[in-house]
Design a protein around this nucleic acid. Structure first.
Length: 455
RNA sequence: GGAGGAGUGGCCGAGUGGUCGAAGGCAACGGACUUGAAAUCCGUCGUGCCCUCCCGGGUACCGUGGGUUCGAAUCCCACCUCCUCCGCCA
């Protein structure tokens, strides 16, 4: 959620941002309508003014109520004989004020709810360097180069991870579908160790960079999800909800890590506060299909080590940290010996809370293209505002400084399913085996995965 | 799952219907003392929102949401969380 003051002070900037993000707030004001963005902001401003007007009226009535109570208190000091006569009209007035105040209060909170619901859907501002548009992501860098399988003597084109995994007996989608539905799966044999090795490795890297390690709940309250900008109730939601409760399965530990410090004031000397979390991630993946969803690439459940950071709002501290988080992610994929490219994601593709997002896409020989394996976003104070996570800046002069909202950043250390896709495809050998990246060998206990005898 | 107890400012903690935005302490900040520091002493010190001629004024907030009352931190109900005991269990 953005600061509502922006609506009153910078309406033009907000309208321009809606265009950049291609996000509409009201169903009748989509990009097909001329001047939709300005009209959207104007309507938001109107909702805001309606609420403020009602609020002022309500506060005036409350002031009168308080006045009446104070008068009643003074009645107690009158001579006993006069008290009853003095009390009567005041009780009457108090009753009347209460009735009016309650009625007005209902209109005021309804108006506030309407405003907040719409305002909450307004996306974060966008970093000036972010490319504007749909798919015009800026490629910031590339590392490594895709293998030339033909030159290496492969008689056939490289296989995709699903075919490799099946031939090495590493995955069982059929049983997954039987037990939990399509896009659920069992990992088997060395894939289990590989999956754990990736978690162990990523957690080690996170700790080396000063992140406090956590395992987190895999469920969270709706309220926390919303605080982080997730919409568990929308029609195109990615989130599983638990029936008859206010709980959801988390789609990422970003939710549980970000929610940890809701309603608190963090100590300045503890910032930046770096936390990492290992969790399962559950996604409905409603409506997604096709090539991209083959095998482990897009599944309903996977495991992820997530990086999360809370920092001050001073200067470009969060931007510097954002680049640091990207560097950590790059270090992980370099250690896994996976060629990749880094994208500065274009404005249309940014999630609502993100101010800027860098994706790492690893080369995936099976489909002959790059595929997303990590993502790191700087959300500034957008999430902190609704979650009420603040810090107290250093005081200047006499007065104690007012608390400010922290900046919050998140990033993937490793999502094991996607990393498995990249490892299996990039490290496949002509004889059908898969070479294990050196950094993972201690945990897998071998250099390569070879076909199971007799399989 | 059953029975009891508790949730108050950054932290600890008093407060059982109006004199309470809330004692006291800690921490923090400003100052005095000191060569400097510590100690001591004096002072300041919650947050959101609304209005403002920027001096201030109003309103709300004592776990959350309802209710009783002219008036609620205080009484009632529901929920959340924590603690103690019992039961069950990996």
């Amino acid at each position: 959620m953005l600061d509502i003051k922006l609506l009153r002070e910078c309406p033009a900037q907000l309208a321009a941002n809606l265009v950049d993000r291609r996000v509409w707030i009201f169903d009748d004001l989509t990009s097909e309508v001329e001047g939709w963005a300005e009209a959207t902001i104007a309507r938001l401003a109107e909702l805001d003014q309606t609420y403020l007007g009602l609020l002022r009226e309500q506060e005036e009535l409350r002031r009168q109520q308080n006045e009446t109570s104070a008068a009643m208190k003074r009645v107690g000091k009158l001579p006993k004989a006069e008290q009853a006569a003095a009390r009567g009209p005041l009780v009457e007035k108090g009753r009347e004020l209460r009735a009016r105040e309650q009625e007005l209060g209902e209109s005021a909170s309804a108006a506030q709810a309407t405003r907040d619901e719409a305002w909450g859907r307004v996306p974060n501002l966008t970093h000036p360097e972010v490319p504007r548009g749909a798919d015009e992501h800026t490629e910031l860098s590339r590392w490594g180069s895709p293998r030339d399988f033909e030159a290496e003597g492969f008689s056939e084109p490289p296989r995709d991870h699903l075919s490799i995994a099946e031939s090495l007996d590493l995955v069982d989608f059929a049983s997954g579908a039987k037990v939990a539905g399509q896009k659920f799966y069992y990992l088997k044999n060395d894939a289990v160790l590989l999956d754990l090795a990736l978690q162990h490795f990523a957690l080690g890297v996170a700790r080396e960079h000063g992140f406090i390690l956590h395992t987190t709940p895999d469920l969270a309250r709706v309220e926390i999800l919303q605080g982080l900008g997730f919409n568990p109730r929308g029609e195109s939601t990615q989130v599983y909800s638990i029936a008859d409760s206010d709980l959801c399965l988390v789609g990422t530990a970003e939710i549980t890590l970000g929610g940890m410090f809701a309603d608190s004031i963090l100590e300045l000397d503890k910032l930046p506060l770096l936390v990492a979390g290992l969790s399962h991630c559950f996604r409905t993946e409603a409506g997604s299909a096709g090539q991209e969803s083959r095998g482990l690439y897009r599944v309903h459940q996977f495991t992820k080590v997530e990086l999360f950071a809370f920092t001050t709002a001073e200067g470009d501290e969060s931007e510097a940290l954002h680049k640091r988080m990207l560097a950590i992610e790059e270090g992980i994929f370099q250690a896994l010996e996976l060629p990749y490219r880094v994208l500065d994601i274009a404005s249309n593709d940014l999630g609502g809370p993100a101010y800027r997002k860098f994706d790492i896409e690893a080369w995936m020989p099976g489909r002959g293209d790059y595929g997303e394996v990590t993502s790191t976003s700087n959300c500034l104070d957008y999430q902190a505002r609704r979650l009420k996570i603040r810090y107290r800046p250093a005081s200047e002069g006499k007065a104690k400084a007012k608390p400010k909202y922290v900046h919050m950043l998140n990033g993937t250390a490793v999502a094991t399913s996607r990393a498995l896709v990249a490892i299996l495809e990039n490290h496949q050998q002509a004889d059908g085996s898969v070479s294990i990246p050196a950094v993972l060998r201690p945990w897998v206990g071998k250099d390569r995965i070879v076909p199971v005898a007799g399989a």
